[in-house]
Amino acid sequence: MVNPEISHHPTICYRSMHPSDLEILEQIHSDVFPIRYESEFFQNVVNGRDFVSWAAVDRSRPNGQSDELIGFVTARIVTAKDSEIADLLRYDPSKGHQSLVYILTLGVVDAYRNLGIATALIHEVIKYASSIAVCRAVYLHVISYNNPAIHLYKKMSFKCVRRLHGFYLINGQHYDSYLFIYYVNGSQSPCSPLVLVTFLVTCMKTGIKTVAAKLRKNEEKMVK
């Protein structure tokens, strides 16, 4: 289905970010986000310094706009043990350096929304994270009132694991944030259903052994 604001059938493609994307990237951020980013952030993104990013373009756009950004996602790699979600990982020091991918910004211009572009961009990040053998998860923050984004991440099997009070400060007002995680490469939360079941089974076995030991002691006393 074509967005009513688009006069043609879009041909959406995805590519890496280029230095030539700088101006339109800044413009879309300004239009989409209430938070303002430093110019250094955009320079680093388009030049691939400390960030990884993907761009969405509509190859069917006329008038030389076929390679102009209509959507994007920016992210960076962080060390797992030093991250804010280290307690949400089953960290194994014996496996050496382990990392995470943190999504910073995700945006799509108004005319191209509801076409699955945001979903496709997130899939690019997940695919990238999964290709890194030592990567444990993809994670991000969502402001508490952004219901469409919250719905999107839940639909894509991200787990909402924490609410952070007053995380954002926008125009002098504090807003809560939700922390979402998507585990990759076989990683899982310490509180995942599988871990809980294993824990309960272990407790049950331990309990049964303890009761059996007490019964044996009682029998021995009776015999004596």
Rank of each mutant, 00 (worst) to 15 (best):
V2H: 02
P4V: 13
E5G: 07
S7F: 10
S7G: 05
S7Q: 12
H8I: 09
T11W: 08
Y14S: 11
R15Y: 03
E23G: 08
E23H: 10
E23F: 12
I24E: 08
E26S: 14
E26H: 09
H29F: 10
D31G: 04
R36L: 15
Y37A: 06
Y37G: 03
E38C: 12
E38H: 08
S39R: 15
Q43A: 15
Q43C: 15
V46N: 01
G48R: 14
G48Y: 05
R49S: 13
D50F: 15
F51W: 14
V52C: 10
R61V: 03
R61M: 09
P62W: 12
G64W: 15
Q65H: 13
S66W: 05
L69C: 04
I70Y: 02
F72S: 02
F72H: 03
V73N: 03
V73A: 04
V73W: 01
T74C: 05
A75N: 01
A75D: 02
V78G: 00
I85T: 02
L88P: 01
R90D: 13
P93G: 06
P93E: 14
P93Y: 04
S94F: 06
K95I: 02
K95A: 06
H97Y: 11
H97G: 07
Q98R: 09
S99R: 07
L100N: 02
L100F: 00
Y102G: 02
Y102S: 07
I103E: 04
I103F: 00
L104V: 11
V108M: 08
V108S: 06
A111P: 03
Y112H: 04
R113V: 05
R113G: 00
L115S: 03
I117W: 01
A118W: 01
I122K: 00
H123I: 09
K127D: 10
Y128K: 10
S130T: 15
S131C: 12
A137K: 04
V138I: 12
V138K: 07
V138Q: 08
H141V: 07
H141Y: 10
H141T: 08
Y145M: 11
N146G: 06
P148R: 12
I150K: 09
L152D: 01
Y153H: 08
M156C: 09
F158L: 08
F158S: 08
C160R: 09
V161P: 00
R163T: 12
L164S: 12
H165F: 09
H165K: 13
H165D: 11
F167E: 08
Y168W: 08
I170W: 02
Q173L: 09
Y175K: 08
S177R: 04
L179N: 03
L179S: 03
Y182M: 07
Y183T: 07
N185K: 01
S187Q: 11
S189F: 04
S189G: 04
P190L: 14
P190Q: 14
P190M: 13
C191H: 15
S192H: 00
S192P: 00
V195C: 10
V195H: 11
L196T: 12
L196I: 15
F199V: 10
L200P: 02
L200S: 07
V201G: 04
T202R: 05
C203Y: 06
K205R: 15
T206C: 11
T206E: 10
G207Q: 14
I208W: 08
K214T: 05
R216Y: 06
N218W: 15
E219H: 06
K221R: 13
M222Y: 15
V223I: 14
